[in-house]
Design a protein around this nucleic acid. Sequence first.
RNA 1: GGCGAGGUAGCUCAGUCGGUUAGAGCGUCGGAUUCAUAACCCGGAGGUCCCGAGUUCAAUUCUCGGUCUCGCUACCA
Length: 682
Amino acid sequence: MPEKFKRYTLTSALPYANGPIHIGHLAGVYVPADIYARYLRMKGEDVLFIGGSDEHGVPITIKARAEGVSPQVIVDRYHEQIKKSFEDFGISFDVYARTSAPVHHKTASDFFLKLYGENKFIEKTNQQYYDEKEHQFLADRYITGTCPHCGYEKAYGDQCENCGTSLSPLELINPKSALSGNVPVLKETKHWYLPLDQYEEWLEEWIIKGHKNDWKANVYGQVKSWIDHGLKPRAVTRDLNWGVQVPLKDAEGKVLYVWFDAPIGYISAAKEWSEKTGKDWKPYWKDEETKLIHFIGKDNIVFHCIIFPAMLKAEGSFVLPDNVPANEFLNLENDKISTSRNWAVWLHEYLNDFPGKQDVLRYVLTANAPETKDNDFTWKDFQARNNNELLAIFGNFVNRTLVLTQKYFDGVVPAVTELDKEAKTTLEEVKLFPGKIAQSLDRYRFREALSELMNLARLGNKYLTDMEPWRVIKTDEDKVKTILNVSLQIAANLAVLSEPFLPFTATKLQKMLGMEQPTWTDAGNTELIKPGSILNKPELLFDRIEDKEVEAQVQRLLDTKKENELAISSKLAKEEITFDEFMKTDIRTGTILEAKKVPKTKKLLKLKIDTGIDQRTVVSGIAEYYEPEKIIGQKVCILVNLAPRKLRGIESQGMILMAEDADGKLCFVSPTEDVSDGSEVK
RNA sequence: GGCGAGGUAGCUCAGUCGGUUAGAGCGUCGGAUUCAUAACCCGGAGGUCCCGAGUUCAAUUCUCGGUCUCGCUACCA
């Protein structure tokens, strides 16, 4: 199975430049990718490890508008912050590029042009809202209007924030442009589509048959599911003024869709790297003997396994990914990580709060990596892994060895006097570790690889404890020489093998042992440290993390939680209305007569309501909270003069009033006393 | 609703191409020890392998059904 490759191109998902990096990004993508890159480099492989900021797309333009600045200001801010925090954290990118760079614009538009020239796209024209004053088509988010469901007047074209409904701009009543406030007009617009359906057969062959056994189950399963469902053409352009201009004459105001331009960013990054280093980028993308690997999170599987490969295939001259080891998600203290809710451990804050402890976080995120299922990061676990594993096992072994060597031999490495049975078997065992760790890493099993590394430290601890040099020294100094030599060789092996996982620690340890730039072939060598060489003063590799420190972090999160709750309950009241406006609504008390689940939906119940005036059908999205049988007879409030609307083919005549709490849980608003149906609510 | 992934010791996870007492780390309890950052080393306790049915001489492992978690997707007050 392990074919021989001449070089490796490793890509890591381009972080979106509208927020900082958090531990979820690190655990899912950057830490495993970095371990892999460092491992390959140590083996002497030719590696190009690519990263960069994804700087296009609508969310960035929205954030810019909200802050009253240009999109460039936003992406500059986050690009710099992200880049610096990666550097400080020791992610060893060969290049960290950005998609707003000229080289990327050129690469992406050339890519587009090539496919265009070879008729690899299909053209379609459809109707979209256009702001005549601003002379541009409007992204869904830039259109506001009245929600057809709840009547909220400031619903967006893609979603109503009042009732949570996803919308299409065409559904909005009284649409307005968020740019000018004008009424937008519908206008025809032309776009280009990549006909993914034409690649189905090829994908089937390449992935379903070709990668059945070497791709992770979560990746393979999802890809197969998509292909089995059948693929549809996907628009590669859109009307927007932030992004890579579509390089055609009749395409003013159009840019490449961000999903199309972003992965090309990997290629542009290689070119940027090429310009800086003078090396040719082409072999890294076009030579058959290059192994291309995409490190991503599970949200990106479809793009990297289906869409981007289809693009590359269409273009024709690029290699395809050999593997896409996507990880699942990391939770934080039992709750989903969320940028908007500020529920995250931010990398730049961590680096600030725990200076010099990059490896601790790298260790914890690797040991607890969401490789096969979602995992949870807790500060308590972070502390325990540092104190009970890194420090107690790894750090302690190194420290014992070095302290003993100082104490008994003034820091001069003793020679083996006689290779006794214990020394021999221990050293034999040491030799097995590079192979074990490599085998795990080759299969992208980073957790397993790391635990093997720790087993080497365990072996060292056991050897020391069993041999009791502190006792033997009283009677047999020669034997202690052998014991400490063996222990030092183990420490040296740790200094080599830990490099991919704990680069800062490895460097520190190498210095203490007087080693220089070891390579992977040094691993397993049990004569790495020469007798007679002088060791540098030992210092502690890891510090104990005290309760106070993690409690402070937990407190910060609790504060965040409180702020979030406050933010919801103190959500600003809607725009003021007059009494007359309110009186337009006709709300009545009513009773549920019948309730049935609407088939093939998760949330919808079809209700029959006695409104006092009449009996009518209402479709209501409450199925997640109420079982149909149990709500028959329930008194409710109902908005009876809401325009009817068809949902799932059923006409809904009115709306049931529900109260919704911070978690989205719904409950009926119902009269506390038995009033007759049809009583007015005012 | 459709699809995918997952549900194994207190916690985080391995594993079983079906087969004697289901594994590891951490935690916990006990012992030993003092070179070491109350760390190391040895040992013990701890599991209806989500639930139910089926196939089988035998199922945690295969099949079917159910359930819970996460994701994608549809639908949506």
